[in-house]
């Protein structure tokens, strides 16, 4: 069965003076229409770069990209990595759209929000400027901006942070794309506004049957909206599976450590947080072996020095559950105690 987006062995590297930055390393994932894939990772884990590559937003002259990313369109599948730049450009905003973290800097300060939405619309639709503004008003209404008709000519600085993100969503969705990539869409927002925006994205996804890739560092947000999860570390996917598998039967020490290190509002008590020692790796000249090995508390449970000499492959540990670890399922579950029946 083919899914709407299928990413295979996608690598993105940036040559710099200090060496080659392997920002995204042999990454594969897929997402289907109507589903949400969450890509979780810390800063520098490479969670954004592969998606920017799918959108064709890297400068091809200064970026090394390999692998493939097929959009299975009705007409015929297109590999957006190898397709000509012009072809990919004609897919942007129409088939695939992206929204970003900071809605203030992502909107042009000199143009009215209606103008910016109408511009995106008129790229793929015949119609006058007035039709564009009419469509913009409809979109603003759809994303829940009160009295949209009055506000369509307002400028981004006249909106609050949450409203600006709504404007971004309206702009991204004006041509009914099939894929929405949301890069930390709520990180810059307050928590009550965050839940509004997440709810909005979910509603619109249902209405238009979109595939959504949600890039985030917040496992709470993942738990709230995702169907499938990719956990990234040091430019690689270390674990990927359906959401409950990840949260309740995690097979990678990084995922379990991350889940245990974050405080939760629903768990009281002055227990000490289980911090992950050390620092995230630099993406230049990654160490030999597993990138998480320097911070992993289970290294000694793997025979020999395998963790520091050999990089584990992403292997299927359970049905549709892949992890990059030498430990067997039984070993890791007995070590972490994470094998909860849902």
């Amino acid at each position: 069965m083919t899914k709407f987006l299928e990413v295979k062995n996608l690598s993105v590297s940036f040559p710099t003076e200090d060496g080659l930055v392997k920002a995204s390393n042999d990454v594969s994932y897929s997402v289907d229409l109507g589903k949400t894939l969450a890509i979780v990772g810390e800063s520098g884990s490479g969670k954004s770069v592969s998606n920017l590559a799918i959108m064709g937003l890297h400068n091809r002259a200064t970026t090394q990209i390999s692998g493939s990313a097929f959009l299975n369109l009705d007409e015929s599948p297109i590999d957006v990595i190898s397709a000509p730049e012009e072809t990919v450009r004609r897919l942007r905003g129409k088939v695939m759209s992206m929204i970003f973290q900071d809605p203030m800097s992502a909107l042009h300060p000199y143009f009215s929000v209606g103008n910016q939405i109408a511009e995106a619309w008129s790229l793929y639709n015949e119609g006058s400027k007035r039709d564009g503004m009419k469509r913009a008003t409809e979109m603003l209404d759809l994303v829940g901006i009160p009295s949209a008709a009055d506000r369509v000519k307002d400028f981004p600085h006249q909106f609050s942070g949450g409203m600006r993100q709504r404007v971004m969503i309206a702009m991204a969705l004006v041509n009914n794309p099939k894929l929405l990539i949301a890069d930390e869409p709520t990180t810059a927002l307050d928590v009550t506004v965050q839940s509004q925006i997440l709810k909005l994205i979910q509603e619109i996804q249902k209405e238009f049957n979109m595939a959504v890739i949600l890039i985030t560092h917040d496992l709470g947000v993942v738990a709230e909206v995702a169907d499938n999860v990719c956990v990234m570390y040091g430019g690689k996917i270390v674990e990927t599976s359906a959401i409950d598998e990840i949260f309740y039967r995690s097979q990678h020490p990084y995922t379990t450590a991350l889940l245990e290190s974050i405080p939760r509002v629903d768990q009281f008590g002055s227990h000490r947080l289980k911090a992950i020692s050390g620092q995230p790796p630099s993406l230049i000249g990654l160490p030999k072996g597993c990138s998480f090995a320097p911070r992993c508390q289970f290294v000694s449970h793997v025979s020999g020095n395998r963790c520091t000499t050999e990089d584990p492959e992403l292997t299927e540990k359970a049905k549709d559950h892949f992890a990059r670890c030498f430990l067997s399922t039984e070993q890791i579950h007995s070590l972490t105690g994470r094998n909860v029946k849902a």
Binding site: L219, G220, A223, I243, F247, I262, V265
Partner: peptide, 12 residues
Amino acid sequence: LSAVPIPDPIIE
């Protein structure tokens, strides 16, 4: 409090 996401899909 209700807006704070909890990293636990079943609870969510």
